[in-house]
Design a protein around this nucleic acid. Structure first.
Length: 422
RNA sequence: GCGAUCGUAGCUCAGUUGGUUAGAGCGCCGGUUUGUGGUACCGGAGGUCGGGGGUUCGAGACCCCUCGAUCGCCCCA
């Protein structure tokens, strides 16, 4: 590689081979399952006015304050490459009059951008699948959304992952709890970790899932959300949990689970690998593979009418790292080796016949004719066909290495229709 | 944004306390061999040792800067 060749941008990926196949498998599974749940597909802009995100997500969050790719366009507007889907979808809901479709179930996927330090499972351009239900205040919406998430993960063959569930209560519950937490932690501020001392001002809820030992003791006896829940909020959460049980979705209560973005209310959840599981070790420190919750306050922050909504997003790269063995086989069914230059067009014609009949087929008609058979063999086809010329006669021979995974009789009939087998 | 480790052919890696024209295996290309056969042998292409600067008679090896990757922290999907 020349030093004159431009390098890829830090934190971007050129995905190829097995990883690309796993990526596609995640997207295909998502597309298939979202149809089962009647989520409608939407395509969204990759960039929006900066205020869409700063108002929706919250100015003080890390995402907005230091991770956005923002720039001024030629017209002088401040624009931002989307760091998440929800804000843009909420904006579209308001500006396109999608209220008429409420309750609206939508799904999408694509690239997102966050200026972060790259790590395994964390990139500056990354990709998510995303599902939202807008205009539904009922706990049944939360249940449906979570049931779909659970089914997608299961159909991807991912195991050792558990749904961690919590409630943040309604706006009043959340505010009262937050105030109590600030009071609790402020009393011991000097003994908290530096990070948590800062969180105390910016995002006190996050102290609850601090990994720092110094914080753990104070987290243990911190006020619990349950003590602050209104009767309605409590009933809502109970409806969600009983709905999940009825739908057969396994979950565990995570009292200290909070979400980083300002707009969350009531239900908050993450799918996290179980400690010590294969999945956990594959993901490293990037543990959450799917996260979301209810965001009843978001529409108002964008100037819309109060509109209840729930949603989640999941990192495609992180899911792809976990699919492993469950990938559908990508097996070459038929390989044709033209072992003589005179048979190249015959082989090209025959491979076309096979492909149009729905076979995965490839012709080996380049490079040294004497080595084509070996090349074809190394591609591990279920059926290997050789086109050659022996003693002036065109010859066609075939070798079956695995008749169980291909329509062998049909394939050989197609071959015989055109050529005499030798 | 902070800390740590690392960066030699397409891939996996060797390169001894700095010392002559930088190597291997696999892969790739070509030749020979084999001729119902994933064989064996021979040959070839491909590296300004991530980039830049410095120390030295001499640097892939040492120092500084920079870019990138990986692993923590932070944050999050």
């Amino acid at each position: 590689m020349s030093k004159n060749t431009p390098q890829a941008i830090r934190g971007t990926q050129d995905i190829f081979g097995a990883e690309a196949e796993a990526f596609a498998f995640v997207v295909e599974t998502f597309e298939r399952v979202r149809r089962l749940y009647r989520f409608r597909r939407v395509e969204m802009p990759v960039f929006e006015k900066t205020e869409v995100f700063s108002r929706a997500i919250g100015e003080t969050t890390d995402v907005v304050s230091k991770e956005m790719y923002s720039f001024e366009d030629r017209g002088g507007d401040s624009l931002t490459l989307r760091p998440e889907f929800t804000a843009g979808i909420a904006r579209a809901f308001l500006t396109n009059g999608w209220q008429q479709h409420a309750p609206l179930k939508v799904a999408t996927h694509g690239p997102l951008f966050r200026y972060e330090r790259p790590q395994k499972g964390r990139y500056r351009q990354f990709h998510q699948i995303d599902a939202e239900i807008i205009g539904a205040a009922e706990p049944q919406a939360d249940v449906e959304l979570l049931a779909m998430a659970d089914q997608i993960i299961r159909e991807l063959g991912i195991t050792g992952v558990t749904l961690h569930l919590n409630t943040l209560g309604d706006a009043d519950s959340r505010d009262a709890w937050r105030a109590a937490l600030v009071e609790h932690f402020r009393a011991v501020k000097g003994e908290l970790s530096e990070d948590s001392q800062e969180r105390l001002e910016k995002n006190p809820l996050r102290i609850l899932d601090s990994k720092d030992r110094r914080d753990q003791a104070f987290v243990a006896d911190a006020p619990k959300i349950d003590a602050f829940l209104s009767d309605d909020a409590k009933a809502f959460f109970e409806a969600v949990t009983s709905g999940l049980d009825a739908a057969g979705v396994k979950w565990t209560r995570a009292e200290s689970l909070v979400r980083g973005l300002d707009y969350y209310r009531h239900t908050a959840f993450e799918f996290i690998p179980d400690e010590g599981s294969e999945a956990a070790s594959r993901l490293g420190s990037q543990s959450t593979i799917l996260g979301g919750g209810r965001y009843d306050g978001l529409m108002e922050s964008l100037g819309g009418a109060p509109t209840p909504a729930v949603g989640w997003a999941a990192g495609i790269e992180r899911l792809a790292m976990l699919v492993g063995d469950s990938l559908p086989p990508d097996r070459l069914e038929i390989a044709i080796a033209a072992e003589n230059v005179e048979r190249e067009t015959d082989a090209a014609e025959m491979v076309s016949v096979f492909r149009q009949a729905g076979f995965v087929a490839e012709a080996f008609i380049t490079g040294s004719p004497r080595k084509r058979y070996d090349k074809a063999r190394k591609s591990e086809p279920a059926i290997l066909i050789s086109f050659d010329v022996r003693e002036g006669q065109k010859t066609q021979s075939w070798l079956s290495t695995d008749p169980t995974i291909v329509r062998e009789e049909e394939a050989l009939q197609l071959l015989e229709d055109r050529w005499k087998l030798s």
